[in-house]
């Protein structure tokens, strides 16, 4: 019995996204370091911005951003544009690595003993920083169209790097409520900002 080869030979993978970053990532996948340098110029503010929002500590954020780019390089050989653009993949990777970093930190600090006051300060700080940091009117408008609970839940998860269970504690609402607000909020954001193929 012989397993059938994949449907997507490396070069035939027709890019669903025709964007420059994806083209650069495909070239980087063939070992082109110059293309990767150009990709770095295009994507590094996006990656570092996300990492910095979640990690907060500038020195640690730099470490994580660097890790993300090395990982992008290592996995560039397997980039598949039909599953999303290079921008989407880079921001996914950035968020995941940033969250890995803050959660492993938290685990080592016995997060079970988090006190409520700190949690509330944390929450306010995240929301304030996010509001202040949004320099794209379109995204700010889209976030403004969410209900308050939807927006807080999405922002605490994405920028705060919290699990939805933590978000429920921070907002003082049931976990099920947070789950559905996150879903409703993301659907609304998707409709406002695009995201459909």
């Amino acid at each position: 019995m012989r397993a059938r080869p994949g449907v997507l030979p490396p070069d035939a993978a027709a890019p669903a996204d025709g964007d420059a970053a994806s083209a650069l990532l495909r070239r980087a996948g063939r070992g082109d370091q110059q293309a990767f340098a150009e990709l770095y110029d295009v994507l590094s503010p996006l990656v570092h911005g996300v990492v910095l929002k979640v990690v907060r500590d500038p020195a640690q954020a730099e470490e994580v951003t660097q890790e993300v780019f090395v990982e992008l390089w290592r996995t560039a050989t397997r980039f598949d544009g039909s599953k999303g653009s290079a921008r989407a993949w880079a921001s996914t990777l950035a968020h995941r690595r940033a969250v890995d970093r803050v959660r492993s930190e938290q685990a080592s600090r016995e997060r079970q003993q988090r006190d409520a006051a700190a949690a509330i300060r944390d929450h306010d700080m995240v929301v304030d920083e996010v509001e202040a940091g949004l320099d794209q009117a379109r995204v700010r408008r889209a976030l403004d169209r969410l209900s308050e609970l939807q927006r807080e839940a999405v922002e605490l998860a994405y920028f705060g790097g919290h699990t939805y269970r933590d978000v429920a504690v921070l907002l003082g609402v049931a976990e099920g409520t947070v789950k559905s607000r996150i879903r409703d909020g993301m659907i609304r954001l998707r409709d406002e900002l695009g995201g459909e193929a």
Partner: peptide, 13 residues
Amino acid sequence: RRTLAEVAAAVAV
């Protein structure tokens, strides 16, 4: 993920 890439771009640094 495409949506979040837009959100991420708004906080680029």
